[in-house]
Design a protein around this nucleic acid. Sequence first.
DNA 1: TTGAAAGCGCTAACAT
DNA 2: ATGTTAGCGCTTTCAA
Lengths: 362, 362
Amino acid sequence: MTDDRHRRATMRDVAALAGVSLKTVSRVVNDEPNVTDATRAQVQRAIDALRYLPDATAANLAHAGRATHTIALLLSAVDNPFAACILRGVEAAARERHVAVFAASTEELPDVEETLVKAFASRNVDGFLITPTACDHRRIAELLGTRWPVVYLDRVPSGITADTITSNNVASATAATQHLIDAGHRRIGLLTDRLSIGTARDRRQGYEDALRQAGLELDETLIQTDVATVDDAVCAGRRLFAADNPPTAVFASRNAATIGMVRVLKQLGLSHQVGLISIDDIELSDLLDPPLTVVSQDPEGMGRLAAQRLFARLDGDDTPPVHLIIPTTLLARGSGEIPCRVTSRGQIRATIHQNTPQETPA
Amino acid sequence: MTDDRHRRATMRDVAALAGVSLKTVSRVVNDEPNVTDATRAQVQRAIDALRYLPDATAANLAHAGRATHTIALLLSAVDNPFAACILRGVEAAARERHVAVFAASTEELPDVEETLVKAFASRNVDGFLITPTACDHRRIAELLGTRWPVVYLDRVPSGITADTITSNNVASATAATQHLIDAGHRRIGLLTDRLSIGTARDRRQGYEDALRQAGLELDETLIQTDVATVDDAVCAGRRLFAADNPPTAVFASRNAATIGMVRVLKQLGLSHQVGLISIDDIELSDLLDPPLTVVSQDPEGMGRLAAQRLFARLDGDDTPPVHLIIPTTLLARGSGEIPCRVTSRGQIRATIHQNTPQETPA
DNA sequence: TTGAAAGCGCTAACAT
DNA sequence: ATGTTAGCGCTTTCAA
C-alpha cells in the first residue's frame, strides 16, 4: 500500500494485538456480557494502544436494518435565522439520542429537495425532517416509502398526509392584522411569500379573516405576494407607498419581508407614521426605532418537537400522522401600536415626496 | 420477517428481476462502460420498478479507503448568525462536490468537541471543519491522525499547526479602535470574549496596538473580558458606565457583545453620546439609531474557503499547513463616528443617574 | 467464556 | 460484454 499511514486500526488489528478473536473484541466494544474482566482489560489495552475507533457504518451494515443514528434536516436556507434556530432545536433533541444531523438547504427548489433526499437516503439516514418546498410531495413520499419516516416542519406538505409541525399561521396572521385594526387602521398592507407555499396562503387567510371580522373590505392593491427576499420586500414596499391610496399600516408576514419593509419605511421617513407588525422575531428588532411589534414563533421548539416525533416513529409508533401546532406570541413593542393618523386620502403620499422624492417611481 | 415493507431493494434484487448478474447492475448504477444499451435499459427498468436506491455506505465499505463524500462541520453554536453563514458557505462548496455536511455545535465545550469528533470519525466522514474550542488541540489532532484531514475555522487551534482560515483579527481590531480614536475618543472601552480564545486575544492585541500607536495609555478598568453572551455584555456594559470614569466610546469585539452593548446604551439614553464600533455585521444593524458602524467579516467566504482547503487535502495536497487570512471591511454607518463630547470627568455618569437611576448599581 | 463461519450490500480483480 | 470470486469491517448465528 502506498499510504499505510492513512489506514485506520480495525477490530481485527485489535484482536490480533490482544491475542483474542474478533468476536471478543466486538463484545468489549459493545459492552456485551460474557467476557472476563481480565480479557476485557487486555482488549481495552489494545484498543487504546491502536487508538481504535469502531466503524459505525460497517457495524450498521452487518446488523442490517439497525439504526445509523443519523438523520437529515432539510431547510429552505440554513442561514435564515428562523431555520438556524430550528437546526438548533433538532440538534438538541438529537444529541440526547446520540444522533448526528445532516443539515442542508433546499433553496426552495423541488429539484434540489429531491436530490438531497436521495443523497441522504443513500447514506442510510434513519429518517428525515423536511421543510417542504412548494410542490406535490407524493413523489418524495413514494421515494421514501415506509423505509424512511419523515416529519414535516413549518409547512404542510401538499398532496400527502404526514406528521407535520407548524406554527398556528392562520391564527397568528389574524391576531397580527387585528392588532393593527385595534390601533385604528383600515387600510392594511400585506407582504407575503408565494402563495404556492402553504404558510403564505394561511397567513393571507388569517389576514382576510381579520378584515372580514372587522367588516373591512379587501383591497387587492394592498396585497403584495411573492415576497421571498429582502429585495423583493423593498420593491413591494415601494410599490405600496407609491400607490394612490397607500396603506396606513403593514403586516409583513415573513422575516425577510419585515426587514425590507423596515428599510423602506425608514427611507421614506414613515417609520413613525405607518404601523408595522411582523411574523417572526429577529435579533435586534426590539432595538429599532420604533421597536418592532412581532408575532414571535418558537423555531427551536419546533425543531425539537419535530425531532422527537421522528424518534417516536423510529421507536415503532405507528399511530396515524399528526399535525402539531405550536402557539405564537404577540409582542407589542411599538411599531404595531402606531395609531392611524391619516384622515384624508393621499396624505402619506405627500410625505413621501417631501422626504425622499428620489425614492418614488415616476 | 415481521416488517418486510420496510425492506429496501438491494442490488441483488435488481439483478434477479433484470435477469443479470450483480456486477452488471453495479456497472449500470455506476455508469461504467461495457454494458450493451439493451442490457442497460433492462437493468434500468428493474431499478425503476423496485425504486432501487444504491447503498452508499456499503459501496464505500467495499471500496475501502474511498471517499464517503461526507464531512463534519463543528461550530460553537449553529444558531449564531456568524456560524450559520459559515455553514452556508461550507454547504455551497460541498454541494458542488456532492458532499453532505454534518453540522454540530460544540457549545465551546472541549468535551463536547471531542465527543463529536469521535462520533463523526466513527461515521467515516472524509474530513473535518472545526471552529476550535479553547483547549489544547493536540488530543484531537492525535485522535484524527493522518486519516482525517482537518481545517480549522475562525480561530487558530492551540498546540498544533494545521490549515486554518481566520479573519484578520488583530488588524480589524486595530482599525476599529483607530476609527474611534479618529473621532476624538481617548477613553475607549473594550468588550471581548474569554482570553483563552485566540480570537479574543488577537482583538485585544489589536485594541492595545491602536492605543499605543496613538500614544494613549491602557486603562485596565476599560477592558471587560469573558463576554460570551448578550447577558454577559449587558452586565459588562453596565459595569463600564457605572464606573467613576466611564469610556466615551466602546469597541464590542463580538456580535453578542455588540447586541448587549446597544441594549445598555439605549437603556442609559447614551446611544447618541457614546461611540460604538463592532466586529461582525448583523442583520438590521444598519437600521438601528444610530446605525451601527461595524468591521464586517465574511463568514460565508470563510466557510467556502475552508471547505475548498479541505477538499484540496482530500485530493492529495500534502503541502505544509497554511493559515489563510480573510480581510475585513470597516463600514462607517454612524455609531462609530459619534465625536467625543465629554470634556469634564464624570459628565457621562451624571447623565446615567438622570435617565435611569435604577440601572446603576449601589 | 470464547471462537469460527456466514453474510450485510457493495466493488475490485479477475475470469469467461 | 458479462459473470465469478473474494473481501471491505463488522455482527450474528451457532458451536466449542
